[in-house]
Each structure stands twice: as structure tokens, then as C-alpha cells.
Write a protein that binds this DNA or RNA. Structure first.
Length: 274
DNA sequence: AGCAGGACCTGATGGC
DNA sequence: TGCCATCAGGTCCTGC
């Protein structure tokens, strides 16, 4: 599941190879991936454009083109975006191929077909509703205790659901929410508004530390995630609770529990978290 | 308005 | 061994 650290890792990889690449042609194998414009328009208008850079907002990848437009990619659950110097073997899960003038290629691969791609002028990026509604970046100074307080006043939801809410904070998913809650010693079922000020501070710091650590290990790979060069991440070897149920907590030895919170598989230590 | 739950999708897994 | 049901999860949508 690509979350912020995985998307950031892909962005950093693409930043090294995409700028200066001019599109020669586009092969669309699954029309459902392209949300805007129409496939015909997409395939007709991209050739001739040159990539100038790459950015990220939450889990959205923003690839900049020289006509002041953006190729926006959301990988959802199983999407991969990777660059190759030459053609690779055909795979039924490759839904889009962008071929560059120098023979290199950018592939979009997605087993579950949830991933989505838009191409639009920078000025119209706000029309992508999920992108426009994103909360602050968790690694920015905007994500602080006063912001947390302002958003929890009238909400009765639990802290896990709040952290998964992309309009509250952008880029967290199931893995890093479980990890950050463990690191901060807070149970996922706690009502968000019940957190004390020290707990809020600790949680914000934990979210940031977990994300920075995961970025430094190039993300978490279970089955599907790969970076822009097709490589796995390594953070799965550093996880404290996610997918570790029935294994001992690395801090206290108590067995990690699994339950469902906010409709998601949820992992926690019943001793370290309260 | 806020929240829960279903839909989307397909490979992996578990039970019979 | 093989078939079928269930599960995984990010976001959008619907309904309470």
C-alpha cells in the first residue's frame, strides 16, 4: 500500500530520471485508470510534451510538464509507477505506458485497478476533489498541537479514524497510523478528543519520526510496492506492530493484538498503549 | 455535519 | 486436490 513514504520514495526516484524526457507516444491498456481527460485526448495531446519535475502532495504524485500541466497519479492499493531504459516484457497489469523519444519508458502497473491518473493544467488541479481537500502535510510545521486542537473540538471519532482521514492530515495510511500510535503509546480506539496535550504532542512527533524513518528505508514492501526503479522498500523489517499480531512487542514482550478499527485491520500492544 | 458501511478490484489464503 | 468464500485496503458515495 503506497502511503506517504512510498510515494515520496517514488517521487525522488522519478525526479532523477524524468526531467528532460520528451513523450513520443502513449499506450493505454486499461481506460479505467485515466480519469481525465478522455483516453483519446490523453493519447493525442501528451506526445511532444517534456517532463520538467516531480512533486508529491499526500499520496498524490505530481509530475510536471513543460506546458504548465500536471500528470497526477494516485497509486491507491497496488499501483506502481516505474521507469525503464527500454521495453520490458508485457504484463496484463500494465495499464499505461509512456514512451519517450530516447526509447526509455514510464510504466503504470496496478493489479487491483484502483489507481487513478489525471492530466490537466496546473490551474485546474483543484478540480481533483481528493487532492483539493487534503489536510496539511504531516512533516510540515502546519501539523501541530493547535491545528490538532482546532480539528478535534466537535468530533467524536476515534484517533485511528482521524489519522486515516486525509482531510485531517495528508498521506497517512493503515501501516503508519498503527506504527505511530504504538510509538506514542496511544490505543487506536481512543476518542480523538480524549487525548491530553502531552499525548497530542507525542503523537505528532511520533507520526513525523515514523514517516522520516520509513522514508530513510525507502518505504515498506509487502507484496506490491516498488520504487521508481522497481526496487522493494526495507521498512517492513523495522515495523513494530503492523502485521506482527501474535508476535511479542519489541518494547515489552507482550503479544501484539489485532482487531478492526475504522474498518481496518489494526495492530497494537495492549501493554504499551493505553 | 459527521460518521459508518458498502462499492470498487483481484490475488492470496483458508476451510471443507 | 480443487473449489468457493473471505480478506486486504484508499477513497468515493450513500444513507442515517
Amino acid at each position: 500500500m503506497p502511503e506517504l513514504p512510498e510515494v515520496e520514495t517514488i517521487k525522488r526516484g522519478l525526479e532523477l530520471v524524468l526531467p528532460g524526457k520528451t513523450i513520443e507516444g502513449v499506450d493505454i491498456n486499461y481506460a479505467g485508470s485515466i480519469k481525465a481527460p478522455s483516453c483519446e485526448e490523453f493519447a493525442r495531446q501528451l506526445p511532444g510534451l517534456t517532463f520538467t519535475g516531480a512533486g508529491r502532495r499526500g499520496k498524490y504524485l505530481l509530475l510536471c510538464l513543460d506546458d504548465n500541466s500536471l500528470l497526477v497519479v494516485h497509486l491507491r492499493m497496488t499501483g506502481r509507477l516505474f521507469f525503464c531504459e527500454s521495453e520490458i516484457e508485457t504484463d496484463k497489469h500494465i495499464h499505461l505506458k509512456i514512451i519517450f523519444k530516447d526509447g526509455s519508458r514510464l510504466y503504470f502497473h496496478d493489479v487491483r485497478k484502483f489507481g487513478t491518473i489525471w492530466w490537466l493544467p496546473v490551474s485546474r488541479a483543484c478540480e481533483i476533489r481528493g487532492l483539493a481537500a487534503l489536510g496539511p502535510e504531516p512533516l510540515s510545521a502546519d501539523f501541530d498541537v493547535s491545528y490538532f486542537n482546532s480539528k478535534t473540538d466537535r468530533r467524536s471519532t476515534n484517533i485511528k479514524a482521524l489519522l486515516l482521514d486525509q482531510t485531517f492530515v495528508a498521506g497517512l495510511g493503515n501501516i503508519y497510523v498503527d506504527e505511530a500510535l504504538h510509538k506514542s503509546g496511544i490505543l487506536p480506539t481512543r476518542p480523538a478528543k480524549s487525548l491530553t496535550t502531552p499525548e497530542r504532542k507525542k503523537l505528532i512527533t511520533s507520526v513525523q519520526e515514523v514517516l522520516l524513518d520509513a522514508i530513510s528505508w525507502r518505504g515498506t514492501t509487502f507484496n506490491d510496492y516498488r520504487d521508481a526503479a522497481g526496487m522493494s522498500g526495507q521498512f517492513q523489517n523495522r515495523l513494530s506492530v503492523y502485521q506482527r499480531h501474535h508476535k511479542p512487542c519489541l518494547s515489552c514482550g507482550t503479544f501484539i493484538c489485532r482487531t478492526v478499527v475504522a474498518g481496518r485491520g489494526t495492530h497494537f500492544c495492549p501493554s504499551c498503549q493505553s
